[in-house]
C-alpha cells in the first residue's frame, strides 16, 4: 500500500506575529518586515547610479519597460487584457515627438504634453473595443497597433517609414536615470494606492463582474475609459520618454516586442500583483540586453520563456518567492491520498 504525500504549508511564526502591527517587539521582526520592502528601492538606487555608463542605459530602458509592465498589469486586473501595449507606447512617442518637432516645444513641456495627448488619443482608439470582453478585447488590441503602423507606413504621415528625427535630448545621464527611476516608483506606488482605494475597488469589480457593476448604477464603459486612460497615460509617458532618449521616433515604436515585453514581465513576475511585473521587468530587461547579440532569436527566447512560465509556474515568481518567505513547506503523509492543497 502506498501512502500519498502532500505538501503542507504553515505560516512562519514570525509572519504570524508581524501580521499584527501592534506586536512588533524585536529588531528581528522589524527587519523581517522592512528588508523585503527596502531592498529593492536601495538596490535599484545603487544599480541606477553606480554601474558603468553602458549598463546605466540598460537600466533606464529596464525602468521604462517596468512601467510598461505595471501599466499592463493594471489594465489586466481591470479585465482589459491588451496584446498591443505597443500602441500606447507608439502614440505617446509620436505625440511628444510631434509636439517637440513641429511646435518646437522644449523637452519639459513635450513629455507631459505628449503623455496627455497620447493618453487621450489612445483612449479614443480603444473606445470602440470597450464593449468587448476577454479575448475579444485582446484580439482587437493586437490588431490596432499593427494596422496603425500600416497607416503610418503607407500614408507617410508623421515621417512615414523614416520617422521623426533630431529631437531634443535629455540634458544628462544623471537626470535621465533620476527621472526614469522616480517615474517608475511613482507609478508603482501610485497604482498600488489606487487599487487599494475605494475608487480603485471599482476597477477590481470591473474584472470580477462587470454586470454587477452595471447593476450597481455605474456605467462600465465610463470606468473602462478611465482605466484605459490611466493605463495608456503610463505607456504614453514611456513612449514620450524613450523618444527623447533616442532623439528619434520611428516605426519600431509599434513593434511586437514592445507588446510582448510587458506581458512577459507580468507573467514571469506574477500577474495581478504589481510587484510581480516590476520584478519580472528587472529580470527580463538586462537579460534581453544580454541577448541582444542573438538578434531576432531574442524575441524567440522571450516568447519561449513566456510560454514556459505560464505552463509551469502560472502564479509567477513574486507570489512564489513571497510564499517561500512567509511559509514553511513540508511534505506530510496524506492517508487517503489528498492532492496538493
Amino acid at each position: 500500500m502506498s501512502t500519498e504525500r502532500r505538501r503542507e504549508r504553515i505560516d512562519r511564526p514570525i509572519k504570524a506575529v508581524t501580521d499584527d502591527i501592534f506586536c512588533l517587539s524585536s529588531m528581528r521582526e522589524i527587519a523581517y518586515l522592512v528588508i523585503p520592502r527596502i531592498l529593492p528601492i536601495v538596490g535599484l538606487l545603487l544599480l541606477g547610479f553606480l554601474v558603468p555608463t553602458y549598463w546605466r542605459k540598460v537600466i533606464v530602458i529596464t525602468f521604462i519597460m517596468g512601467m510598461m509592465a505595471l501599466s499592463w498589469d493594471f489594465m489586466a486586473s481591470c479585465g482589459l487584457t491588451s496584446l498591443g501595449q505597443a500602441l500606447f507606447f507608439a502614440i505617446g512617442a509620436y505625440s511628444s515627438a510631434a509636439v517637440n518637432h513641429y511646435l518646437g516645444l522644449p523637452i519639459y513641456l513635450s513629455i507631459p504634453l505628449g503623455t496627455l495627448i497620447g493618453a487621450i488619443i489612445s483612449t479614443a482608439c480603444i473606445y470602440p473595443a470597450l464593449g468587448l470582453r476577454g479575448i475579444y478585447f485582446s484580439m482587437v488590441t493586437l490588431i490596432i497597433p499593427l494596422m496603425l503602423m500600416r497607416v503610418v507606413e503607407t500614408t507617410g504621415i508623421l515621417g512615414g517609414t523614416e520617422g521623426i528625427t533630431g529631437l531634443t535630448h535629455f540634458p544628462g545621464m544623471f537626470i535621465t536615470t533620476t527621472i526614469s527611476m522616480a517615474a517608475l516608483w511613482a507609478t508603482f506606488f501610485g497604482l498600488r494606492r489606487l487599487i487599494d482605494s475605494d475608487y480603485g475597488h471599482i476597477f477590481v469589480a470591473l474584472k470580477d463582474n462587470d454586470r454587477a457593476v452595471e447593476a450597481s448604477g455605474l456605467s462600465i464603459r465610463w470606468f473602462k475609459v478611465q482605466a484605459i486612460f490611466i493605463g495608456s497615460a503610463i505607456c504614453c509617458f514611456c513612449g514620450a520618454f524613450m523618444t527623447h532618449y533616442y532623439m528619434s521616433v520611428g516605426m519600431s515604436a509599434f513593434a511586437v516586442d514592445l507588446s510582448i515585453f510587458p506581458i512577459a514581465a507580468s507573467v514571469v513576475g506574477g500577474m495581478g500583483t504589481l510587484a510581480g511585473p516590476l520584478l519580472g521587468a528587472i529580470i527580463l530587461g538586462p537579460l534581453s540586453e544580454a541577448l541582444r547579440t542573438f538578434g531576432s532569436f531574442r524575441v524567440v527566447i522571450y516568447a519561449a520563456l513566456l510560454g514556459t512560465f505560464i505552463v509551469t509556474l502560472p502564479e509567477g515568481l513574486f507570489p512564489y518567492l513571497a510564499r517561500k518567505y512567509q511559509q514553511i513547506e513540508r511534505w506530510v503523509e496524506a492517508p487517503g491520498g489528498i492532492s496538493e492543497d
Binding site: 477590481v204 469589480a205 474584472k207 470580477d208 463582474n209 454586470r211 454587477a212 447593476a215
Partner: peptide, 12 residues
Amino acid sequence: RTFQMVKPFYRL
C-alpha cells in the same frame, strides 16, 4: 435588481 446567479465581486 438582483441576479439569479449571484454576482459578487469575488476579490473584494
